[in-house]
Amino acid sequence: MQKRNAIKYDLLADRYHLQTIDQLVDPLVKIETCIDFAHLAAEIDHVVPRPVSKKGGRPPFPTETMVRILVLKRIYNLSDEQMEYQLLDRMSFKRFCGLLHAINIPDRTTVWTFENRIGEAGAKAIFDGVTSQLLKKGFIARGGQIIDATLVPAPKQSFTKDEKEQLKQEAIPAHWKPTKRRQKDLDATWTKKHGKSHYGYKLSVNMDKKYKFIRKIVTDTASTHDSQHFERVIDKANTNRNIYADRGYPSAEREAWLKANGYRSQIQRKGHRNKPLSKTQQGRNHRIAKIRARVEHAFAAMEQMGRKLIRTIGQVRANFAMTMMAACYNLKRLAYFQRTGILAF
């Protein structure tokens, strides 16, 4: 007897597949339920108005659709080419972006053009928009603030000895064609950390102790010392006056500044040659370390979104990528609270 084919066919198969995805808990559905993407799109259109073409032509995709695509691109660390492919291939992506029944899907050029059009101002509008929605849901900054920085790797550049000499003199090598110049990152820098060399950029953050949301950010090159961003990432809205940081931040001037501005310094002490830390200071450092380590959870979450690696060339695009990195971390963090039923109080 011939066996029946185990595969069943149905014209409504896609609908059944989506129902199964929902039963398996689609993480994108959780994100969609906790963030008002229409409001984020309105913020971007206000900061970076949509261009009006006098020549007519095909109308652009809605800003909300493109914002959702940028969020997917950052969360899953996709290139523009992979973003185009996944939008064509994955039902959950198409549903999240409102393209489930659309014939035309934004291609790689459309994604690249939109990202470059809104630039840093657009990325900041997304970060600030997510932050404002956190506050509306009651997640105000509480418990004190933790300040730290993380290195963000960029594609390493190789230069000849002659090219390095010309670049030191702020001159572009004459033999570089425009196409080659666009592929050379002249902004990223080298730095050393724990005896290892790193190339790329730096993201300094301020995270609230209670909810572990990133409240303030500053972007820079890798060689910039962490402490130079300290005052710029202070969050005046935090309800607690404690400020936690590691041994890279202490100085007499900073301690005086914190005291003058009504903050309580919880910065770890640093020992010096012939003047080691006392047992009391070591105990204090240990207590602070337990709290300060909470910021590492945020950096680990960013690592899971794509190893914190950026594929862009230049400071401007790196700033965009790092700002989106912080915004998407907050977005995923809010979705976690939504999924677990934890409410702000």
Results as ranks from 00 to 15, higher is better:
L135S: 01
A149P: 07
L167S: 09
R90N: 14
A174L: 10
I140Y: 04
G122Q: 11
T131H: 13
K161I: 13
S158D: 07
L167I: 15
F139D: 04
D107P: 09
A125G: 09
V152P: 01
L100K: 08
F139V: 04
A121K: 15
K136I: 02
D107M: 09
Q145L: 02
G119A: 13
P153D: 11
R108K: 14
L151H: 12
F139M: 04
I118E: 09
A171E: 15
M91Y: 01
D148C: 12
A123M: 14
E165R: 15
T160Y: 07
G129N: 07
W112N: 14
R117K: 14
E120W: 03
Q145S: 13
R90H: 13
A102M: 08
R108P: 00
G122S: 11
R95F: 01
A171D: 11
I172L: 14
E115S: 14
L134F: 06
R117N: 10
I172C: 07
K124I: 14
K161V: 14
D128L: 06
K124T: 13
G138S: 10
T150W: 07
A123D: 06
Q86N: 12
F93C: 03
R95C: 00
Q86M: 10
S158M: 03
Q169L: 14
L151W: 05
Q86V: 08
L87R: 05
I126L: 07
Q169M: 12
D128G: 02
F114Q: 11
G138E: 10
E165V: 14
F159R: 11
K136L: 13
S158Y: 10
G129Y: 05
V111D: 09
L99H: 05
I172D: 06
A123F: 06
L87C: 05
I126F: 07
M91A: 12
Q86K: 06
Q157W: 02
Q133V: 06
T131S: 11
L88R: 10
K137I: 00
G98H: 10
H175C: 01
P155F: 03
L87S: 05
P173G: 08
A171I: 15
E163L: 01
K156H: 01
G129S: 07
E120D: 06
Q166V: 00
Q166G: 02
L99I: 03
R142M: 13
E170L: 10
L167A: 07
H101M: 12
K137C: 00
V130S: 08
Y85G: 01
Q169I: 01
F93N: 03
A154V: 08
L135G: 00
A154K: 02
Q169S: 11
F139H: 00
G138N: 09
R142W: 03
A125R: 08
Q133S: 02
R95V: 12
F114G: 13
L100H: 03
L135M: 04
S132L: 11
S132Q: 15
K156T: 11
I172A: 04
L151E: 04
K136V: 05
D162G: 00
F93M: 05
L134P: 06
G129E: 06
C97I: 05
R117G: 01
W176F: 04
S132I: 00
M91T: 10
H101D: 15
I105V: 15
V111A: 13
Q133P: 04
W112E: 12
E120M: 05
P153K: 04
A102L: 01
C97H: 03
F114A: 12
P155V: 02
A123K: 04
F93D: 04
